[in-house]
């Protein structure tokens, strides 16, 4: 622990709450943005400019009847949303928001990141994959065929895009020579952002990230016309809210990850680190929402073939080229 136990606990508490608050705010942003993309207003009735809409949604979800379907396995059914949500929030834990910060008016300092783990990248990828367990368990334990199908599809999607995702990330890894986020950020200092040398990898990463987070156009696992609501068909009220929560926080995590890996995270002139992180994450979230507003849903076989036949070869090619140039460059430098 880089700051001591108590401070880390406080930081963790703050981080989770801020993350949740940000998530709630992002639902409003998403709905308003999609509305504007479609040349209409989004929700603007509840609260000023509709800002209390997430509160209203929360209220609605809280009041829904909490039930367990007859054919479900109760313990696993109740466990699944927690698995998803825990993994989603946990994956965000290692994101760097800057370097050392001082509390104004005192001499206390703390780091703007939870820990500088030397396996942070690996950890994030692992937790992201672990989160899919929640979908699988939820889908299977619901005791409904649509949920089962949705869960199966989620796993297939994960497997297809996890490899390409990891290969794209390894490209960055080769450049940075470290799995630690702090090192990766520092390696990009001085405008040497990895988006330029790793542009192909960045594209692969973006596509894979959209697929990993079950966002449109890769949201077949919860497509209404296909599988009713996929793995969360039999979930209602707050349990459904947890699944939706987990999905969006996954998206936030991946946006933050993209910001860290390719846009140097909290680095940037003038503005403080957290603000840069916010802007860059926000940029990627905007791209996520833009994708949602524009593209139609990808058919599942198209999705699989995209993952295996296009992204994987491209990511492999990117890796090989990167490796070649890094070795060549270092042997010359």
């Amino acid at each position: 622990m880089v700051d001591g136990f108590i401070v880390t606990v406080i930081k963790g508490f703050a981080l989770v709450n801020l993350l949740m608050g940000f998530f709630a705010f992002m639902t409003w942003v998403e709905r308003r943005l999609i509305g504007r993309f479609q040349q209409r207003l989004g929700p603007n009735r509840v609260g000023p400019a509709g800002l209390l809409q997430p509160i209203a949604d929360l209220g609605k979800l809280l009041r829904k009847q909490s039930m367990i379907p007859t054919g479900a396995r109760p313990r696993l059914y109740l466990l699944a949303p927690f698995v998803s949500l825990t993994c989603a929030i946990g994956a965000f834990g290692f994101m760097p928001f800057g370097g050392l910060a001082t509390i104004p008016g005192t001499s206390l300092t703390f780091h703007l990141y939870m820990a500088d783990s030397n396996v942070a990248l690996l950890f994030v990828a692992a937790l992201g994959s672990l989160g899919f367990y929640g979908l699988l368990i939820g889908g299977w334990a619901s005791g409904s065929k649509y949920a089962m199908l949705g869960g199966m599809r989620a796993i297939a999607q994960l497997v297809s895009y996890e490899v390409a995702f990891t290969l794209a990330v390894i490209g960055v890894l080769i450049h940075a020579r470290s799995l630690s986020f702090i090192d990766i950020v520092h390696a990009q200092s001085g405008w040497y952002w990895y988006i330029l040398p790793q542009f192909l990898g960045f594209l692969v990463f973006m596509v894979a990230a959209v697929a990993e987070s079950n966002r449109p156009p890769f949201d077949l696992t919860e497509a209404d016309g296909e599988v009713v609501a996929g793995y969360h068909t039999e979930y209602g009220g707050m349990r459904f809210a947890m699944f939706a929560n987990a999905e969006f926080i996954n998206a936030i995590t991946l946006s933050a990850l993209a910001a860290v890996l390719f846009l140097a995270g909290p680095e940037g002139p003038l503005l403080p680190g957290p603000l840069w992180m916010l802007i860059k994450t926000g940029l990627f979230l905007f791209i996520f929402i833009w994708l949602r507003a524009t593209t139609p849903r990808v058919r599942f076989d198209q999705l699989m073939s995209l993952g295996w036949k296009l992204l994987l070869p491209v990511a492999t090619l990117n890796l090989l080229v990167t490796a070649f140039f890094v070795v060549y460059g270092s042997s010359h430098a």
């Binding site: 509305g35 504007r36 993309f37 479609q38 040349q39 209409r40 207003l41 603007n44 833009w290 507003a293």
Partner: peptide
């Protein structure tokens, strides 16, 4: 081009009639 269409629409005035 599809993305540019959506982006263009972002900057147009919404046509919602607020009842």
């Amino acid at each position: 081009k599809g993305f540019s269409v959506t982006l263009r629409h972002l900057f147009r005035k919404p046509v919602t009639q607020e009842y």
